[in-house]
Design a protein around this nucleic acid. Structure first.
Length: 295
DNA sequence: AACGCCGCCTGATCGC
DNA sequence: TGCGATCAGGCGGCGT
């Protein structure tokens, strides 16, 4: 599941390859991906357009384009959803089964967006950006504002971290990882975090995300060629080779395995219909209510 | 207004 | 062996 770090790494890879390129031809194989545009509208808008730049906001990729005829700038928002992949491939190379959108470029290359579960988007509708909270790695994300927002919420902190209006870009994986690093129980009500816990969590979020980006930037891209069938480039979701990506996560998807800090078995619970992973010993002690249940 | 819950999707896995 | 049920989960939309 691509979250902020994976999208950031993807953006850094794709940006230099897409900047300045002209879109010669557009193929929409999955109309849902380009909603609310009808496929023909999307095709008409992008054909002949030049890609000016690529940026990331939260888990979104922001393509800034300049149209062929009107010479006006517009943006296309990309989201990988659960299973989306984006890469540059040579023309003639076989396309993945679930290819959703293809942008034919110059130099015999194409940009491919494939998405099995079709939760992703490549759309001219950029309204989603308006609802987003601060970028966690920017100066806009302050511990003070973070704490103030948490005090207003009775939701469990793990669930609250998934709220993109609080802080943008954290998904299910990094929510659990950040809470583990901060030694805060995922079930603690947001408003019950002590100031020291807010501070620890704020720091942990930034560290965990920054380290994931740094790590992702070092991943060799050679195995990408296999996943793109000999394509020129690889995308961002480093899940392609099993285990490779999961190795550095300390609690996510590690139910039953020993905690890296204390050795107690990591547990999996369900919050808001999503898996949560935590160490009952490292993260349980601050949650009085939970402790009482335990004893 | 904050919060809970559903629907969207398909492939992998599970139980019978 | 085969087949249906269940699970995974980001996010928009809707109801309370």
């Amino acid at each position: 599941m691509p979250e902020l770090p994976e999208v950031e790494v993807l953006c850094r890879h794709l940006g230099p390859l897409l900047g300045g390129r002209t879109i010669r031809h557009v193929e929409v194989r999955r109309p849902k991906i380009v909603l609310p545009d009808a496929p023909e509208e999307f095709v008409a808008a992008l054909t002949g357009a030049k890609i000016l730049s690529l940026a990331r906001r939260a888990k979104y990729l922001v393509f800034t384009l300049r149209s062929a005829r009107q010479r006006e700038e517009f943006v296309v928002l990309g989201h990988l959803g659960m299973t989306g992949r984006m890469f540059i491939a040579r023309r003639g190379v076989a396309m993945p089964k679930h290819t959703a959108v293809v942008l034919e470029l110059d130099r015999q290359q194409r940009f491919v967006f494939e998405d099995t579960r079709v939760f992703g988007r490549l759309s001219r509708d950029a309204s989603s950006l308006g609802l987003l909270g601060p970028e966690p790695l920017s100066d806009d994300f302050t511990a003070e504002a973070f704490g103030a927002a948490l005090r207003k919420s009775s939701q469990a902190i793990k669930v609250k971290l998934l709220d993109q209006s609080l802080v943008a870009g954290i998904g299910n994986i990094y929510a659990s990882e950040s809470l583990f690093r901060a030694r805060v129980s995922p079930r603690l009500a947001a408003r019950r975090l002590k100031p020291a816990q807010v501070q620890a969590l704020w720091r942990a979020i930034r560290e965990v995300l920054a380290e994931a980006i740094a790590w992702g930037s070092t991943v060799p891209l050679n195995f990408a060629d296999r996943s793109t069938g000999g394509g020129v480039f690889y995308f961002g979701q480093a899940d392609g080779s099993a285990g490779y990506y999961h190795e550095r996560l300390l609690v996510y998807d590690r139910a039953g395995q020993p905690c890296a800090v204390c050795g107690a078995p990591i547990r999996r619970t369900v919050q808001a219909a999503r898996s949560t992973f935590d160490c009952p010993r490292c993260q349980g002690s601050e949650d009085r209510r939970e402790r009482r249940e335990w004893i």
